[in-house]
Protein backbone atom coordinates (compact mmCIF):
# COMPACT_ATOMS: atom_id res chain seq x y z
CA UNK A 1 0.00 0.00 0.00
CA UNK A 2 1.24 3.45 -0.95
CA UNK A 3 0.18 6.46 1.07
CA UNK A 4 1.23 10.01 0.17
CA UNK A 5 0.26 13.06 2.17
CA UNK A 6 1.07 16.75 1.77
CA UNK A 7 3.68 16.13 -0.91
CA UNK A 8 5.41 19.40 -1.88
CA UNK A 9 8.22 19.92 -4.37
CA UNK A 10 9.90 23.17 -5.37
CA UNK A 11 11.97 23.20 -8.53
CA UNK A 12 13.99 26.39 -8.29
CA UNK A 13 11.49 29.24 -8.02
CA UNK A 14 8.60 27.16 -9.27
CA UNK A 15 6.27 25.16 -7.05
CA UNK A 16 5.88 21.88 -8.93
CA UNK A 17 3.76 20.12 -6.33
CA UNK A 18 1.76 22.09 -3.79
CA UNK A 19 0.65 19.49 -1.30
CA UNK A 20 -0.76 16.35 -2.90
CA UNK A 21 -2.24 13.53 -0.83
CA UNK A 22 -3.62 10.17 -1.92
CA UNK A 23 -3.57 6.48 -1.09
CA UNK A 24 -3.42 3.40 -3.30
CA UNK A 25 -4.11 -0.01 -1.82
CA UNK A 26 -2.02 -3.11 -2.41
CA UNK A 27 -2.65 -4.39 -5.92
CA UNK A 28 -4.27 -1.09 -6.86
CA UNK A 29 -3.50 0.82 -10.04
CA UNK A 30 -3.74 4.60 -9.99
CA UNK A 31 -3.23 6.64 -13.15
CA UNK A 32 -1.90 10.17 -12.87
CA UNK A 33 -3.34 12.38 -15.57
CA UNK A 34 -3.19 16.06 -16.21
CA UNK A 35 -1.94 18.58 -18.74
CA UNK A 36 1.77 19.08 -19.42
CA UNK A 37 3.51 20.62 -16.44
CA UNK A 38 0.81 19.54 -14.02
CA UNK A 39 3.38 17.66 -11.93
CA UNK A 40 2.83 14.01 -12.92
CA UNK A 41 6.48 13.17 -13.50
CA UNK A 42 7.58 15.25 -10.53
CA UNK A 43 5.20 13.33 -8.31
CA UNK A 44 6.67 10.01 -9.44
CA UNK A 45 10.20 11.28 -9.02
CA UNK A 46 9.37 12.53 -5.53
CA UNK A 47 7.90 9.17 -4.52
CA UNK A 48 11.00 7.47 -5.95
CA UNK A 49 13.12 9.82 -3.84
CA UNK A 50 14.83 11.37 -6.84
CA UNK A 51 13.88 14.98 -6.04
CA UNK A 52 13.92 16.75 -2.69
CA UNK A 53 10.40 17.00 -1.30
CA UNK A 54 8.36 17.70 1.79
CA UNK A 55 5.46 15.66 3.05
CA UNK A 56 5.09 11.98 3.86
CA UNK A 57 5.53 9.01 1.59
CA UNK A 58 4.64 5.68 3.21
CA UNK A 59 4.87 2.21 1.74
CA UNK A 60 3.17 -0.55 3.74
CA UNK A 61 3.21 1.66 6.81
CA UNK A 62 6.89 2.43 6.52
CA UNK A 63 7.81 6.11 6.10
CA UNK A 64 10.35 6.78 3.32
CA UNK A 65 12.64 9.55 4.48
CA UNK A 66 13.11 12.50 2.16
CA UNK A 67 16.53 12.92 0.59
CA UNK A 68 17.60 9.35 1.34
CA UNK A 69 17.40 7.77 -2.08
CA UNK A 70 19.23 4.74 -0.87
CA UNK A 71 18.84 1.02 -0.97
CA UNK A 72 15.87 1.02 1.41
CA UNK A 73 13.92 3.26 -0.92
CA UNK A 74 14.76 0.99 -3.84
CA UNK A 75 13.35 -1.95 -1.89
CA UNK A 76 10.07 -0.05 -1.44
CA UNK A 77 9.54 1.56 -4.84
CA UNK A 78 10.71 0.67 -8.34
CA UNK A 79 10.75 3.32 -11.05
CA UNK A 80 10.53 3.21 -14.83
CA UNK A 81 11.46 6.65 -16.19
CA UNK A 82 10.05 8.28 -19.29
CA UNK A 83 13.27 7.73 -21.17
CA UNK A 84 15.57 5.04 -19.80
CA UNK A 85 19.33 5.11 -20.16
CA UNK A 86 20.20 1.90 -21.94
CA UNK A 87 23.97 1.30 -21.95
CA UNK A 88 24.21 0.25 -25.59
CA UNK A 89 26.68 -2.61 -25.24
CA UNK A 90 25.24 -4.11 -22.06
CA UNK A 91 23.62 -7.52 -22.39
CA UNK A 92 19.95 -7.88 -21.48
CA UNK A 93 20.66 -10.39 -18.70
CA UNK A 94 23.24 -8.12 -17.09
CA UNK A 95 20.89 -5.16 -17.39
CA UNK A 96 17.98 -6.90 -15.67
CA UNK A 97 20.34 -8.04 -12.92
CA UNK A 98 21.05 -4.39 -12.08
CA UNK A 99 17.56 -4.21 -10.58
CA UNK A 100 18.78 -6.53 -7.82
CA UNK A 101 21.28 -3.98 -6.55
CA UNK A 102 19.39 -3.14 -3.38
CA UNK A 103 19.00 -6.81 -2.43
CA UNK A 104 22.62 -7.75 -1.81
CA UNK A 105 25.22 -6.03 0.32
CA UNK A 106 26.92 -2.99 -1.16
CA UNK A 107 30.09 -4.75 -2.26
CA UNK A 108 28.68 -8.27 -2.12
CA UNK A 109 28.27 -10.70 -5.01
CA UNK A 110 25.11 -11.59 -6.90
CA UNK A 111 23.32 -14.41 -5.12
CA UNK A 112 21.61 -17.47 -6.53
CA UNK A 113 18.31 -15.81 -5.56
CA UNK A 114 19.21 -12.76 -7.64
CA UNK A 115 19.83 -14.92 -10.65
CA UNK A 116 16.67 -16.94 -10.09
CA UNK A 117 14.48 -13.85 -9.78
CA UNK A 118 16.01 -12.32 -12.90
CA UNK A 119 15.69 -15.51 -14.90
CA UNK A 120 12.01 -15.82 -13.95
CA UNK A 121 11.27 -12.23 -14.98
CA UNK A 122 13.16 -12.57 -18.23
CA UNK A 123 11.04 -15.61 -18.98
CA UNK A 124 7.82 -13.92 -17.86
CA UNK A 125 8.40 -10.85 -20.06
CA UNK A 126 9.29 -12.89 -23.12
CA UNK A 127 12.95 -11.90 -23.18
CA UNK A 128 14.41 -15.40 -22.76
CA UNK A 129 15.73 -15.55 -26.33
CA UNK A 130 17.31 -12.12 -26.01
CA UNK A 131 19.39 -12.46 -22.83
CA UNK A 132 22.73 -12.27 -24.64
CA UNK A 133 21.73 -9.39 -26.93
CA UNK A 134 23.25 -5.95 -26.36
CA UNK A 135 20.58 -3.41 -25.45
CA UNK A 136 21.32 -1.37 -28.57
CA UNK A 137 20.05 -4.23 -30.72
CA UNK A 138 16.59 -4.39 -29.13
CA UNK A 139 13.45 -3.03 -30.74
CA UNK A 140 11.48 -0.38 -28.89
CA UNK A 141 9.05 -2.89 -27.44
CA UNK A 142 11.78 -5.32 -26.39
CA UNK A 143 13.75 -2.52 -24.77
CA UNK A 144 10.72 -1.33 -22.81
CA UNK A 145 10.10 -4.87 -21.57
CA UNK A 146 13.75 -5.09 -20.51
CA UNK A 147 13.35 -1.85 -18.52
CA UNK A 148 10.20 -3.20 -16.93
CA UNK A 149 12.00 -6.44 -16.07
CA UNK A 150 14.82 -4.47 -14.44
CA UNK A 151 12.31 -2.49 -12.36
CA UNK A 152 10.34 -5.60 -11.39
CA UNK A 153 13.59 -7.31 -10.36
CA UNK A 154 13.66 -4.87 -7.47
CA UNK A 155 10.64 -6.79 -6.09
CA UNK A 156 9.40 -3.55 -4.55
CA UNK A 157 5.73 -3.43 -3.52
CA UNK A 158 5.21 -0.20 -5.48
CA UNK A 159 5.91 0.26 -9.20
CA UNK A 160 6.14 3.77 -10.64
CA UNK A 161 5.63 4.04 -14.39
CA UNK A 162 6.31 7.33 -16.16
CA UNK A 163 4.72 7.15 -19.62
CA UNK A 164 6.19 3.71 -20.29
CA UNK A 165 4.35 3.37 -23.61
CA UNK A 166 5.06 6.77 -25.17
CA UNK A 167 7.40 5.44 -27.82
CA UNK A 168 5.53 2.21 -28.47
CA UNK A 169 2.95 1.42 -31.08
CA UNK A 170 -0.49 0.39 -29.98
CA UNK A 171 0.12 -3.36 -29.95
CA UNK A 172 3.30 -3.10 -27.92
CA UNK A 173 1.70 -0.58 -25.57
CA UNK A 174 -1.06 -3.04 -24.86
CA UNK A 175 1.42 -5.86 -24.36
CA UNK A 176 3.34 -3.92 -21.72
CA UNK A 177 0.19 -2.78 -19.96
CA UNK A 178 -1.40 -6.21 -19.99
CA UNK A 179 1.77 -7.67 -18.49
CA UNK A 180 1.73 -5.04 -15.77
CA UNK A 181 -1.89 -5.80 -15.08
CA UNK A 182 -1.25 -9.54 -14.77
CA UNK A 183 1.71 -8.98 -12.49
CA UNK A 184 -0.18 -6.70 -10.15
CA UNK A 185 -2.93 -9.25 -9.80
CA UNK A 186 -0.43 -12.06 -9.25
CA UNK A 187 1.74 -10.34 -6.67
CA UNK A 188 -0.33 -7.50 -5.24
CA UNK A 189 1.91 -4.89 -6.87
CA UNK A 190 0.75 -1.29 -6.38
CA UNK A 191 1.07 0.66 -9.63
CA UNK A 192 1.30 4.43 -9.98
CA UNK A 193 1.21 5.39 -13.63
CA UNK A 194 1.75 8.79 -15.22
CA UNK A 195 -0.02 8.78 -18.58
CA UNK A 196 -1.09 11.17 -21.32
CA UNK A 197 -3.46 8.88 -23.15
CA UNK A 198 -6.71 9.32 -21.27
CA UNK A 199 -8.47 6.41 -22.95
CA UNK A 200 -5.64 4.01 -22.05
CA UNK A 201 -5.73 5.38 -18.51
CA UNK A 202 -9.43 4.70 -18.34
CA UNK A 203 -8.99 1.16 -19.57
CA UNK A 204 -6.21 -0.09 -17.30
CA UNK A 205 -6.26 1.91 -14.07
CA UNK A 206 -8.66 1.29 -11.18
CA UNK A 207 -8.79 4.99 -10.49
CA UNK A 208 -7.53 8.25 -11.97
CA UNK A 209 -5.94 11.21 -10.18
CA UNK A 210 -6.17 14.43 -12.14
CA UNK A 211 -3.34 16.84 -11.37
CA UNK A 212 -3.49 20.51 -12.24
CA UNK A 213 -0.79 23.06 -11.39
CA UNK A 214 0.67 20.82 -8.73
CA UNK A 215 -2.59 20.06 -6.98
CA UNK A 216 -5.00 17.16 -7.05
CA UNK A 217 -7.99 18.47 -8.98
CA UNK A 218 -10.11 15.34 -9.15
CA UNK A 219 -9.91 11.71 -8.11
CA UNK A 220 -12.17 8.78 -8.82
CA UNK A 221 -13.05 6.21 -11.39
CA UNK A 222 -12.58 7.03 -15.04
CA UNK A 223 -16.27 7.81 -15.40
CA UNK A 224 -16.10 10.26 -12.49
CA UNK A 225 -12.93 12.04 -13.60
CA UNK A 226 -13.09 12.03 -17.38
CA UNK A 227 -15.98 14.41 -17.87
CA UNK A 228 -15.98 16.91 -20.68
CA UNK A 229 -16.28 19.61 -18.06
CA UNK A 230 -13.05 18.53 -16.30
CA UNK A 231 -11.23 18.12 -19.58
CA UNK A 232 -12.30 21.55 -20.76
CA UNK A 233 -11.40 23.21 -17.47
CA UNK A 234 -8.06 21.52 -16.80
CA UNK A 235 -6.79 20.58 -20.24
CA UNK A 236 -8.35 23.45 -22.13
CA UNK A 237 -9.50 20.79 -24.55
CA UNK A 238 -12.77 20.39 -26.38
CA UNK A 239 -13.58 16.69 -26.34
CA UNK A 240 -16.35 14.22 -26.61
CA UNK A 241 -16.42 11.47 -23.99
CA UNK A 242 -17.80 8.29 -25.51
CA UNK A 243 -18.88 5.24 -23.61
CA UNK A 244 -16.65 2.36 -24.61
CA UNK A 245 -16.95 -1.29 -23.69
CA UNK A 246 -14.20 -1.15 -21.03
CA UNK A 247 -14.54 2.47 -19.92
CA UNK A 248 -14.94 5.96 -21.26
CA UNK A 249 -13.20 6.87 -24.53
CA UNK A 250 -12.00 10.41 -25.01
CA UNK A 251 -12.21 11.79 -28.51
CA UNK A 252 -11.10 15.31 -29.45
CA UNK A 253 -13.50 17.55 -31.35
CA UNK A 254 -12.23 19.85 -34.10
CA UNK A 255 -12.53 23.57 -33.78
CA UNK A 256 -11.18 23.59 -30.22
CA UNK A 257 -9.76 26.74 -28.69
CA UNK A 258 -6.27 27.99 -29.42
CA UNK A 259 -5.35 26.93 -25.89
CA UNK A 260 -6.53 23.43 -26.62
CA UNK A 261 -4.36 23.24 -29.68
CA UNK A 262 -1.43 24.52 -27.67
CA UNK A 263 -2.03 22.23 -24.72
CA UNK A 264 -2.25 19.09 -26.74
CA UNK A 265 0.29 19.79 -29.46
CA UNK A 266 3.57 18.79 -27.71
CA UNK A 267 2.37 15.38 -26.64
CA UNK A 268 0.21 14.92 -29.68
CA UNK A 269 -3.47 14.12 -29.55
CA UNK A 270 -4.04 10.57 -28.50
CA UNK A 271 -7.54 9.52 -29.00
CA UNK A 272 -7.73 5.76 -28.91
Amino acid sequence: MLSVSGLQVRLGERTALAGVSFEVGAGGWLALIGPNGAGKSTLLRAVAGLVAHRGRVEVDGQVLRAGRHGRRRALAVAYVPQRSTLPPTMRVADYVLLGRFAHHSYLGPDTALDRAVTARLVERLGLAELTDRPLAQLSGGEAQRAVLARALAQQAPVLLLDEPTTSLDLGHSQLVLELTDELRHESGLTVLWAVHDLSLAAQYADELLLLHQGRAAARGTARQVLTSGNLDRYFGARVQVLDGASGPVVSPVRGGTALAAQALAPGGARAG
Partner: peptide, 12 residues
Amino acid sequence: SLGEEEAASVGL
Protein backbone atom coordinates in the same frame (compact mmCIF):
# COMPACT_ATOMS: atom_id res chain seq x y z
CA SER B 1 26.28 3.17 -16.37
CA LEU B 2 22.52 3.69 -15.88
CA GLY B 3 23.20 7.33 -15.15
CA GLU B 4 22.75 9.17 -11.90
CA GLU B 5 18.96 9.08 -11.67
CA GLU B 6 18.20 5.51 -12.67
CA ALA B 7 21.12 4.23 -10.61
CA ALA B 8 19.54 6.04 -7.65
CA SER B 9 16.21 4.40 -8.44
CA VAL B 10 17.75 0.93 -8.05
CA GLY B 11 19.39 2.04 -4.81
CA LEU B 12 22.83 3.28 -5.81
